[in-house]
Simulated assay, not measured.
Amino acid sequence: MDGIPNHVMLKQYSDAASFSDNHVREIPYDGETAMDIYLQVMNSTPKWVGVLMRLRNRIASALGLKHLGNFENFSPDKTDYKVGDRVGIFTMIYQSPVEVIMEDKDKHLDVKVSFHIAPNGDRATVTASTVVHEKNRLGKLYMFFVGPAHKLIVPATLNKLPKL
C-alpha cells in the first residue's frame, strides 16, 4: 500500500498505516542535508497550499481538531534544529544528514513526514514520504478529504525545488 522505499527510515512506521504516500524528485546537489532540503521546501510552499492550510485550520478548529498553524510558522534562517523541536507545523522526531522525520499527533491522527536525500555526485534524489495512522472516526473523516489533497500538495511543493 505505501510504496515507501526500504532505505527510508520512515518505512518502519508504515505497518498498519491507514494512509501513506511517497513522492520522488531529482535535484541538483551541492552538499545539502535532508534538513536543508526540508527547510527549503517549507520556505517555498506554493501560496495556494497556504490558503488551503488556513481553510483547513478554520474547519478543523470548528470540528474540535487541532489547529496546526501554517507552513510559514518557522524560522527559515534557523539551521540548528534538534530532535524534539517544533519546525513549522511538525515536531522533529529523527534527524540524520540524509533523512529528517517530522511528526504531529493528537487523539485523532498520528502523522509522520520524512524527507530523505540520496546524493549521487552533483545530483540527488529527494524522497518525501508520509505515513498516517487514523485513531478514530473523526481521523478517518479528516483523511477522506485531506488524503486526495495531500497527493497534489506534496508534488507541487517538491516542484519548487531547483530543477536539474
Rank of each mutant, 00 (worst) to 15 (best):
P119D: 04
V113D: 14
H116D: 09
H116W: 12
K105C: 08
T127C: 03
R123A: 03
G121Q: 06
S114Y: 04
P119W: 02
V132H: 02
T125S: 12
K112L: 09
R123H: 14
I117W: 12
H133W: 01
H116G: 01
F115G: 08
A124F: 10
N120W: 01
K107P: 00
V111N: 12
V113G: 12
K105I: 02
T125N: 09
K112E: 03
T130I: 13
D106I: 06
D110Y: 11
D122P: 00
L109I: 15
D104T: 14
V126E: 06
L109N: 13
T130F: 01
D106P: 01
A118M: 07
S129Q: 05
I117H: 11
H108N: 15
P119V: 03
D122Y: 00
H116V: 05
D122H: 08
V131K: 10
S114Q: 09
V132A: 04
G121A: 04
D122M: 03
D104L: 07
L109W: 10
V113C: 11
D106T: 05
K112C: 02
V131Q: 07
S129G: 09
T125Q: 14
T125W: 00
H133T: 04
V111I: 15
L109M: 11
R123S: 11
A124N: 10
V131S: 06
V111M: 14
A124E: 05
V113P: 01
I117T: 14
K112Y: 11
R123P: 00
A128N: 04
D106R: 08
P119G: 04
A124G: 11
S114H: 07
H116P: 00
R123M: 04
V126Y: 02
I117Y: 11
A128F: 04
V111W: 12
A118H: 05
T125Y: 01
D122R: 09
S114P: 05
H133K: 12
K112Q: 15
D106M: 02
T125C: 01
D104I: 09
D122Q: 10
A124W: 13
K105L: 07
I117G: 09
T125A: 05
T125V: 09
H116Q: 10
A124C: 08
V111A: 14
K105M: 08
R123K: 15
P119C: 03
S129R: 06
K105T: 11
G121H: 05
V126R: 07
T130Q: 03
G121S: 08
V132R: 09
H108G: 07
K105S: 14
K105E: 15
P119N: 03
S114W: 05
T127I: 11
T130L: 01
F115L: 15
V131A: 06
F115C: 15
D122N: 13
D104P: 05
V111Y: 11
H133E: 01
V111Q: 10
D110I: 13
R123G: 00
K107E: 15
N120V: 04
V113F: 12
V126C: 07
T130D: 01
V126L: 04
T130V: 15
A118I: 10
T130P: 01
V131T: 12
V131Y: 06
H133I: 03
S114R: 11
P119L: 04
R123F: 02
P119E: 02
V126G: 07
A128Y: 07
F115Q: 13
